[in-house]
Amino acid sequence: MARNIEIKARIESVESLLPVAAEIADEGPIEIDQDDTFFACPNGRLKLRAFSEHDGQLIFYQRPDSAGPKESFYVISPTSSPDTIRQLLSLAYGEIGRVRKHRTLFLAGRTRIHLDKVDELGDFLELEVVLAEGEPNEAGVSVAHELLEKLGISPHQLVEEAYVDLLAKLPNKPILSPTSAGR
Rank of each mutant, 00 (worst) to 15 (best):
S81W: 07
P82V: 09
D83P: 05
T84F: 09
T84R: 11
R86G: 03
R86Y: 09
Q87V: 09
L88Y: 11
L89Q: 02
S90L: 11
L91H: 13
Y93H: 08
Y93F: 13
G94I: 09
G94S: 04
G94K: 06
E95A: 11
I96Q: 07
G97C: 03
R98V: 04
R98K: 10
R100C: 03
R100S: 06
K101E: 01
K101V: 01
K101W: 06
H102R: 13
H102S: 03
R103P: 04
T104E: 00
L105V: 07
G109L: 01
R110F: 05
I113V: 05
L115G: 03
V118A: 06
D119H: 13
E120I: 07
L121Y: 12
L121S: 06
G122E: 06
D123T: 03
L125C: 02
V129F: 12
V129A: 09
L131C: 08
A132I: 09
A132E: 15
E133Y: 12
G134Q: 14
P136L: 13
P136F: 09
E138F: 12
E138K: 15
A139H: 14
A139P: 11
G140S: 11
G140R: 10
G140N: 10
V141L: 10
V143P: 09
V143D: 14
H145E: 15
H145F: 15
E146R: 15
L147T: 05
L147S: 08
L148C: 13
E149C: 08
K150F: 10
L151V: 08
L151W: 10
G152Q: 10
G152A: 10
I153N: 08
I153A: 07
P155D: 07
P155S: 10
P155Q: 05
H156V: 11
L158K: 08
L158Y: 08
V159E: 12
E160P: 10
Y163K: 00
V164C: 00
D165V: 00
D165Q: 07
D165E: 06
L166T: 03
L167G: 04
K169P: 01
L170A: 00
L170C: 02
P171E: 03
N172W: 00
N172F: 06
